[in-house]
Amino acid sequence: MLTIWIIFRREVAQYFASPLAYLIAAAFLLLTGITFNNDVALSITVKPVEPALIPDLLAEIMVLIAPLLTMRLLAEEHREGTVELLLTAPIADSSIVIGKFLSAWAYFTFLLALTLLYQFILVNISQPDIAHTIAAYLGIWLYGGATLAVGLLFSATTENQILAAFLSLITLLVLYFGDSAGQIVANLDVAAILFNLTLRGHYAPSFSIGVVRAEDVVYYAGVMAVALFIAIRLLESKRWRG
């Protein structure tokens, strides 16, 4: 646990020292801020405020943000050669991967926490459905964790950060839009299976409408566990490849 904490601390510090992380944060806040502003403006005359507005937006853009936040994590260790020192330090390989994953998730949590400012404003100017919002935030937090785990997995495959980001982007797009394939097959069961395999399939029909289902929590936890397990195995394989 201590070694996970040491890795985690270094990586979190790295996020707050990285210009790219600040750029991502700026873009993140700009996009969510504009969306929130438009929704508040519409709520005056057209419709009530959307409690899951920010989480719904993030469900779409995490496919782009997660690769950018995670591409550096292991690819940089490979490129700089520091992976050789990490793998010869008296620590478990899993500590390296878990520490790095938790740091990315913590940074995402920090970004997510910044958007709570919008909820604070809403509480003061209207009567939003708080429970619905909490469910949606829980959902997007798990959803974000799953996308970051996939990003980390591809960062373990190469020393080229751009390639790592590209591979994870493709994979996340498949996981995101996979349910579209369900719409073109003429079989409801197959369509349901495809939908249930996608990231959106466990967010849109539940967390987004304020429903917390155990199966969705298990799905995101499962994606994280599988991706991290493969990332650990990929890191271990470095020992065999030299």
Partner: peptide, 28 residues
């Protein structure tokens, strides 16, 4: 074991002190 590989592996964005402290902590 203390190990120095042929190409010195560094974290360029860390301070000298932070870098050595990181390895000291990691090695208990």
């Amino acid at each position: 074991v203390g190990y120095l590989p042929e190409r010195v592996p560094v974290y360029p964005d860390m301070t000298v002190r932070g870098y050595v402290l990181f390895w000291a902590r990691l090695r208990g």
